Every structure is written in structure tokens, then in C-alpha cells.
Measured scan of single mutants.
Amino acid sequence: VLHDLRQRFPEIPEGVVSQCMLQNNNNLEACCRALSQES
């Protein structure tokens, strides 16, 4: 999931992506929604 998200959101730091995964229990859809608001 992390690799997938890193490719979709290259401009977001890995730490932020990891934190997002923890908050969303590694749910790819939820992470994508959260990160798209972030970027």
C-alpha cells in the first residue's frame, strides 16, 4: 500500500503517507482521499 501511495502522491513526504496509513488502518481508498486533500 505504501509503495502504491508513494507513486500516486510523489510530492507528499513518506512520513506523512505512513502516518496516514496508520490513521486509516492501511485502507488504500481512505488514504487516497486523505492524501488528495493534503496535496
Rank of each mutant, 00 (worst) to 15 (best):
E38C: 13
H3Q: 15
E11P: 02
Q37R: 12
L28H: 08
Q23G: 03
S39W: 10
E38I: 12
M21H: 01
S36P: 10
S39F: 09
N25S: 07
R33E: 11
M21L: 12
A34H: 10
R33S: 09
Q7H: 06
R33K: 12
Q23A: 14
N27V: 02
E11N: 10
E38M: 15
E38L: 14
V16P: 00
Q19F: 07
R6E: 09
L35T: 04
C32D: 05
Q23M: 11
P10G: 02
A34D: 09
H3P: 05
L2R: 06
C32M: 11
I12M: 10
N24R: 00
Q19M: 12
A30H: 08
H3K: 14
S18E: 15
R6A: 08
Q7L: 10
E14P: 10
E11V: 03
H3S: 13
Q23K: 09
L2I: 11
S36M: 11
N27D: 13
P13D: 08
E38H: 14
V1W: 07
C32V: 15
H3F: 07
F9E: 03
R6T: 06
N24T: 01
L5R: 03
M21E: 03
V17K: 00
F9C: 03
L5S: 01
E14Q: 08
R8C: 00
R6H: 12
H3W: 09
L35M: 01
D4R: 10
C32A: 09
G15V: 12
C20I: 14
N24Q: 04
S18I: 12
N26A: 05
V1A: 06
N25G: 10
A30K: 08
S18Y: 09
V16E: 11
Q37F: 06
L22C: 06
S18N: 15
S39A: 08
R8V: 00
A34S: 07
I12L: 11
A34P: 01
L2A: 09
P10A: 00
P13G: 03
Q7D: 11
C20S: 11
Q19A: 15
C32P: 03
L22H: 13
C20T: 13
C32G: 04
G15M: 11
Q37W: 07
R8K: 13
V17F: 03
A34K: 07
G15A: 14
F9L: 00
L5E: 07
A30C: 03
Q23S: 09
R33A: 13
M21I: 10
G15R: 13
Q37L: 13
V1L: 15
S36Y: 05
C32R: 04
E14T: 05
Q19R: 14
E11A: 05
S36E: 14
V16W: 03
H3N: 10
N24W: 04
C31M: 03
Q19G: 07
G15K: 14
N26P: 00
N26V: 02
Q7C: 03
D4S: 10
M21S: 03
Q37A: 13
Q19T: 11
R8G: 00
F9K: 05
N24V: 01
V17L: 13
G15Y: 14
L2T: 09
L22M: 13
A30S: 06
C31S: 05
E38T: 10
Q37T: 11
P13Q: 04
L22T: 13
A34M: 09
R33D: 08
S36K: 12
P10K: 00
R6Q: 09
M21Q: 00
C32F: 04
G15W: 13
H3E: 15
C32H: 09
M21P: 03
F9Y: 12
Q7E: 13
F9D: 04
L28W: 12
N27M: 00
A30D: 08
V16Y: 14
R8Q: 03
L28Q: 05
V17Y: 02
N27G: 02
L2P: 08
R33P: 03
S18F: 09
V17G: 02
C32S: 08
H3L: 06
C20H: 04
V16M: 11
C31Q: 02
D4F: 14
Q37D: 12
L35C: 04
L35R: 02
D4G: 03
L22W: 08
V16F: 03
N24D: 01
S36C: 07
C32Y: 08
V16D: 08
R8E: 06
S36A: 13
Q23V: 09
Q37M: 13
A30N: 09
L5G: 04
S18C: 07
A34Q: 13
E11Q: 10
S18L: 15
C32W: 00
H3T: 12
L2V: 05
E11L: 06
R6C: 14
H3Y: 06
R6V: 09
S39G: 12
N27C: 01
Q23L: 10
L22V: 12
I12E: 04
N24H: 15
P13S: 06
S39E: 11
V16L: 08
C20E: 11
S36Q: 13
L22F: 09
